[in-house]
């Protein structure tokens, strides 16, 4: 038997710690978001159900769900929501909270890619596309990486020919001028966010 408490603790937490989380309570469970999502069939919990789970206090289940990681930001749900909930934003906010709370399901590809992108970007202040692609291809080991790279070969070559991908980027690549200033900025931003959303 599941002893759910239906207390609002988690809802309050979401309101405080999730971007646009204060709108979760406005959901009236019509389900139009769930039906509108193009990735819907691949979710364990569609948005409206996630919102109900939040209200039911199912913290663990919500944060460890992979559902919010499936959002592709198509905005269909926002457009159709009769209560004007910014569902896309809430999904991303929930994903972020899950990440910060260390609840992301192991091997969740969107989460993984997000981390790679972040790491790649924050190192130099610029996205090193070549390295990002390679790290993505090789995330599951060398053999799989070669396969992935071969499969994407023609795309890569095409980009190179068009001057959109510089092979020399592998040697470190370009970066912004004031890297340390940029790092400081990120640190400050994180501090602000942590304080505001009590994420420390």
């Amino acid at each position: 038997m599941s002893e759910m408490k239906y207390h609002n603790n988690f809802l309050r937490e979401v309101e405080e710690r999730v971007e646009e989380g204060h709108m979760v309570k406005m959901c009236m469970q019509c389900g139009v978001c769930s039906g509108s999502c193009p990735f819907g069939p691949h979710w364990a919990h569609p948005p409206q159900e996630l919102f109900m789970m939040i209200r039911a206090g199912k913290r663990e289940e919500v944060l460890s769900s992979d559902s919010m990681w499936m959002c592709t930001s198509c905005y269909q749900c926002i457009v159709r929501c009769p209560r004007k909930l910014p569902i896309t934003h809430i999904m991303h906010g929930l994903a972020y909270l899950a990440k910060r709370e260390g609840k992301v399901p192991k091997g969740q590809p969107t989460a993984q890619f997000g981390q790679m992108f972040w790491d790649n970007l924050t190192k130099t202040g610029r996205v090193n596309e070549l390295k990002l692609s390679l790290s993505l291809y090789f995330k599951d080991g060398f053999g799989q990486g070669i396969k992935n790279a071969m499969a994407m070969q023609s795309v890569g070559l095409g980009l190179m020919k068009a001057g959109r991908l510089n092979p020399l980027e592998i040697l470190g690549g370009h970066s912004i001028k004031d890297k340390s200033g940029f790092q400081a900025m990120l640190k400050k931003a994180r501090e602000i966010e942590d304080t505001r959303r009590k994420l420390a």
């Binding site: 038997m1 599941s2 002893e3 759910m4 408490k5 239906y6 469970q29 159900e49 109900m52 039911a56």
Partner: peptide
């Protein structure tokens, strides 16, 4: 019975 979460054994205990 929580009809949305389809939980027949939902409860508010306190």
């Amino acid at each position: 019975h929580d009809l949305i979460l389809n939980d027949e054994n939902a409860a508010i205990a306190d």
